[in-house]
Simulated assay, not measured.
Amino acid sequence: MLKRLLTFGFVALMSMAVSAENLPADPTKPATSFVVSDVEKGATKFIVSSLITGKKRNLAVVNGQSVYVGDLVDGAKVLKISRQGVHLEVLGERQFISLTERQGFSKKKSVK
């Protein structure tokens, strides 16, 4: 009787282990497949939404991220930040992104 009970318990434990292997993948883990990013395809569009320039250090907001010279933003390296815009290196090529290239905003001051 004890031998049957132990055998039944062992079979029950093994069936739980087998059913645990059939659970769906953990949604918090990244996918194991290789995905080519937009940066690798050269399709990322860079948008400068803000520039803060000073004597010691300049700051820009590119694609919603605050960046300094030397930082990476969406796969591009920030080479220079000036009052006119941001110089980036994307896939070995230099790009200049101007603050004035934005759409939906005007540089005109409102009149009261």
Rank of each mutant, 00 (worst) to 15 (best):
T7D: 06
T7Y: 05
F8A: 15
V11M: 04
L13G: 11
M14H: 02
V18K: 11
N22E: 13
L23I: 07
P24Y: 07
P24H: 03
D26L: 10
D26S: 09
P27R: 01
T28L: 12
A31W: 06
F34K: 14
F34W: 11
V35W: 02
S37I: 03
D38V: 03
V39Q: 08
V39P: 00
G42I: 07
A43N: 15
T44K: 09
K45V: 15
S49K: 07
S50W: 10
L51T: 04
N58Q: 02
N58S: 14
N58V: 08
V61D: 05
N63G: 03
G64K: 04
Y68V: 09
V73G: 04
V73P: 01
A76C: 00
K77D: 03
V78C: 00
K80C: 00
I81L: 06
R83Y: 01
E89L: 10
L91A: 07
G92V: 05
E93P: 00
E93R: 12
S98G: 02
S98R: 09
L99S: 08
T100P: 03
R102K: 12
Q103T: 14
F105W: 13
F105T: 06
S106E: 11
S106A: 12
S106R: 10
K108C: 05
K109G: 07
S110Q: 12
V111G: 01
K112H: 10
